[in-house]
């Protein structure tokens, strides 16, 4: 009950926040919500089903490119383009999953497989003429008109879309954990042999986790495409992007519902805070921010290896799942 009340307060605050803050804090909040959303999506695979993916940038990139290309070529609004985007990303995920699970590629090896496919795709897109290759793909920006279906409009529109997506993903993963499938995932994460002996079809449950996770992640990619209006294979499919996606859920607490949200708040504020501080003192040299970021990450990992949320939840006296 206490957890729900806290969540309600947080959600209400986020709902009214735009009225009270300026353009820059709003942009930071959008970034926080975007990474919280992607973290929740990744957490379905690793946190719940125990499948380590280090190539989630693949699904962000596919989602972004498919929806953006359909909009640019045929004028298909983003919310409709999201369907084929999710289908393409899910098929890619299922393909990698089927290969990996059938050939018994597990743990770190599976993670390497996901990196290999993401990098492979990055290089392909770098050389694909009709999506602009390495010089990137751009969406036309039209000022002054707002259209929710097409995801065209001012930052505030994107803020509420990001908030809606994050809240929906949060509620959806909360609900999933209370289904047969959710139990199957947790069982497989803990011990796949025991899960199978309890009647869980391990292959199918793992494939379902990949499907849910890649579909959700690709919708994050659609958001990215229409919010930033530009995408470069070098960035969107990069290993660095995959790592950015997984930082928040791990720092927040793997396998917990609220972990990705908390992790995203902490990490984004840490990053933005360091930037402002360094600029304030005139020390903003390239690399300076990331060194401090890395040091902070190191401290968090050393002090709270299981993540911040399980610890904070105990402090607040709420269930660790929140």
């Amino acid at each position: 009950m206490k957890a729900r009340a806290l969540l309600g307060v947080l959600f209400a605050l986020l709902l009214i926040a735009p009225a009270a803050i300026g353009a820059y804090p709003l942009a930071v909040l959008i970034l926080i919500l975007h990474y919280a959303y992607l973290g929740i999506a990744w957490n379905v695979m690793m946190g719940f089903a125990g499948i380590l993916s280090l190539g989630h940038a693949l699904y962000v990139g596919l989602g972004a490119y498919v929806a953006a290309a359909l909009y640019a070529s045929f004028g298909l609004p983003a919310l409709l383009g999201a369907v084929p985007a999710a289908v393409v990303a899910t098929l890619a995920g299922l393909g990698i999953g089927a290969l990996g699970f059938r050939f018994r590629v597990n743990g770190v090896y599976f993670a390497l497989l996901t990196i290999a496919f993401a990098e492979f795709t990055r290089i392909l897109f770098d050389h694909m003429g009709w999506t602009g290759g390495s010089s990137g793909f751009f969406l036309p920006v039209e000022h002054g008109h707002t259209n929710l279906i097409a995801l065209r409009g001012p930052p505030i529109l994107f803020y509420y879309v990001a908030l809606g997506m994050t809240a929906a993903a949060f509620v959806a993963s909360h609900a999933l954990m209370r289904t047969r499938l959710g139990y199957a995932w947790l069982a497989i994460r803990e011990d796949a042999d025991s899960a199978a002996a309890s009647g869980v079809d391990v292959f199918r449950a793992r494939m379902a986790a990949v499907a849910v996770s890649s579909a959700l992640t690709s919708l994050g990619g659609v958001f990215y495409a229409f919010y930033y209006n530009n995408m470069y294979p070098e960035q969107i499919f990069s290993m660095a992007r995959s790592i950015e996606i997984i930082l928040a859920p791990i720092i927040g607490g793997l396998g917990t519902l609220f972990g990705p949200v908390l992790g995203s708040f902490v990490l984004t504020l840490l990053g933005e805070g360091t930037t402002s501080l360094l600029e304030h003192f005139g020390l903003a040299a390239p690399g300076a921010k990331q060194v401090i970021y890395g040091l902070a990450l190191l401290v968090i990992v050393m002090v709270r290896p299981a993540g911040l949320w399980p610890w904070l939840a105990r402090r607040l006296g709420v269930g660790r799942d929140g």
């Binding site: 139990y183 011990d191 025991s194 869980v200």
Partner: peptide
């Protein structure tokens, strides 16, 4: 091979 991270109840609920 218990599901170490789950509660006793959830362990048996999986079965």
């Amino acid at each position: 091979k218990p599901f170490a991270g789950l509660s006793v109840l959830d362990n048996v609920a999986v079965g």
